[in-house]
């Protein structure tokens, strides 16, 4: 058993000074490492300064995009048109609903005086 221990100790001393790793093997291992290495989170797209916006692009962005802005403009134009022209079809609807075409005289927030007077 002593002979065996001596031989194993001699082998262990040899193993403690390992032969250098061949360059070709190390190159293959490092090539694998480079291929499989996870990429860090990249903020490359944000690193460049944002392009300067024109006035209308800025207004469009403010309202949430060109489509929203176009819809809003159309609704505003329609409101101005209906208010200025007051087409008969609209007047008929107004009469049916509120009993008067003089919309500007309507009291949308009546006081409670009339209710109190009835008591």
């Amino acid at each position: 058993m002593e002979n065996l221990d001596d031989l194993l100790a001699q082998r262990a001393a040899f193993a403690a000074q390992p032969a250098p790793v061949p360059d070709a093997l190390m190159a293959r291992i490092l090539a694998d490492a480079a291929r499989l290495q996870p990429r860090p989170y990249a903020f490359a797209a944000r690193e460049t300064a944002p392009a300067k916006l024109t006035f209308w692009q800025a207004v469009s962005d403010l309202f949430g995009g060109g489509g929203v802005l176009a819809g809003l403009a159309t609704a505003a134009c329609a409101g101005v048109y209906l208010g200025a022209v007051q087409p008969s079809a609209i007047t008929a609807v107004t009469l049916a609903l509120v009993g008067s075409s003089a919309v500007d005289q309507l009291d949308f927030m009546p006081s409670i005086d009339s209710l109190l007077a009835e008591e």
Binding site: M26, I29, A33, A34
Partner: peptide, 27 residues
């Protein structure tokens, strides 16, 4: 560090581990 994208970590780690594994597998 390797998993976080450090390009030098793989080389350092390989130089620490490969000689031992290579020696063991050879034996």
């Amino acid at each position: 560090a390797y998993a976080n994208g450090d390009p030098d970590a793989a080389r350092d780690l390989a130089h620490r581990i490969v000689p031992r594994i290579l020696g063991y597998a050879t034996r």
